[in-house]
Simulated scan of single mutants.
Amino acid sequence: MTVQAPIPVIVNGAAGKMGREVIKAIAQADDMTLIGAIDRNPSLTGQDVGEVAGCGALEIPILPDMEATCAMAAQEKQLPVMVDFTHPKSVYENVRAAIAYGVRPVVGTTGLSDQQLQDLADFADKASTGCLVIPNFSIGMVLLQQAAIQASKYFDHVEILELHHDQKADAPSGTAIKTAQMLAELGKSFNPPKVTETETIAGARGGLADENIRIHSIRLPGLIAHQEVMFGAPGQVYTLRHDTSDRVCYMPGVLLAIRAVIQLKSLVYGLEKIL
C-alpha cells in the first residue's frame, strides 16, 4: 500500500485572525505539513508561527516575502498549496505570483473583480495549475445559498443583508456577491418595481447587483460574519440566516479546499463546486 506524502502548505497572511486559525488547523491535520508562513507585519518577522498562532512551536519562521517563499518551494520541487487570507489590494498579485511558481492557491481573501477573476482563470489554465477562490469556507453558508436557490423559484422579491466586523476592508462581502450571482444565474429578474423610488440619502437602498437584487452591508465591532437572504411575498417573509460565532467554523472548508486543489488544473470559484 502506497502512503501518500503530506500536502505541503504555505499560509499567506499567517498572523491575521484567519491565518492563525489556518495555521492551527494545518498543524492538526495528519495529511498536511506546514512549510511556510508569510506575513508583512515587520514586528513578527522571524517569530515561530506556531507560537504566534497559539498552538506551540512549529519551527516555521514568519517571513515577509511571499514570492521568495514560493520560489524556494518551487526550487525544492514541493509544489505546495498556498492559502491566502491577506487584503483585497494585494490578493490578485499574490495569486498570480503563486501560479507563476507552480504553487496552487486556495484563496479566502475577497475583493477580486470579475475581470481579475477572469485573468487569473486564464493564467491558471495556461499554467495547468489548480486554483480555488472561495468567498466563504463555511459549509453552513453553502447550505444557505442552496436553500436560497430553491426559495427563489417561489418568491419574486429578495434582498441580501450582510454584517461583518469593522476591520473588513471590502463591501459588500464576497459571500453576498456570490449569493446574488447564484440567484441571478437562474435567469429570473427579481423585485419588480411597485413605485418610483427616491433615495433621500444616497445608498439607503443598498447596492444593486444583477437582476435587480439589492445588497446591504453593515460593519460593526462585535460582529464576525453574518448573512441574511430575505424573500418577501404578500402576507409572508421567508428569511434565511447564517451566523458565525468563531472563525474555527471555516476550517473544515479550508482543509477540504487544500485537499481538492491539488487535483485541479484550472481555477474553480466557490466551495459548492468541490463539495
Rank of each mutant, 00 (worst) to 15 (best):
A27V: 06
A225F: 08
Q4H: 05
D243Y: 08
R40G: 09
R214C: 00
L34W: 03
V237C: 12
S189F: 06
A171Y: 11
A29K: 03
V261F: 02
F137G: 01
L220T: 13
Q181K: 03
A147R: 15
P8W: 11
L223F: 12
K77F: 14
T69M: 08
P252V: 07
S152Q: 02
E59H: 11
V11E: 01
T86W: 01
A71H: 08
D30L: 03
M251F: 10
L223N: 05
A124R: 00
T109G: 13
T86K: 14
D246S: 09
G232K: 14
A14T: 06
P252G: 03
G19L: 10
S217E: 00
M82D: 09
C55S: 05
T69G: 00
P193R: 13
P221L: 09
P172N: 04
T45L: 12
T239R: 09
K265N: 04
A57G: 08
G174V: 13
A71M: 08
V229G: 11
L144W: 01
F231L: 05
K194S: 14
V22D: 04
S113P: 11
L34E: 09
K168Q: 13
N212T: 07
E162D: 05
D122W: 10
H164T: 10
V142A: 13
H157F: 05
T110F: 02
I274A: 04
Y269P: 00
A184P: 07
Q146Y: 15
L183E: 08
K77L: 10
T198F: 04
H157D: 03
D48P: 05
V52N: 07
M66H: 15
S217P: 04
L240C: 09
D156C: 09
M82W: 00
P61S: 07
A5D: 08
L143R: 03
A127I: 10
E211Q: 09
I60D: 04
A57D: 05
Q167D: 12
P80I: 14
L220E: 07
G111I: 01
A37T: 02
M1Q: 10
G13W: 07
T86R: 07
D246T: 10
V11I: 11
D246R: 06
Q150N: 07
A97C: 10
P88C: 02
A257I: 13
Q4C: 10
E159I: 09
L183W: 09
L120K: 12
I23T: 11
L275C: 14
G207K: 00
G13P: 05
G232M: 11
I7L: 08
H216A: 00
L144C: 10
V248A: 15
F85K: 01
A202R: 00
A171V: 06
S152D: 07
A127K: 08
L163H: 02
S113Y: 08
R247C: 02
A37L: 14
P80D: 00
P8Y: 04
P135W: 06
K273A: 08
G235S: 12
D166E: 14
L223I: 10
V195L: 15
L223D: 05
C249E: 13
D156T: 12
D119K: 14
K168A: 12
S266L: 11
T33N: 04
V3S: 04
M251A: 07
V83R: 00
Y101T: 09
S43D: 03
Y101Q: 05
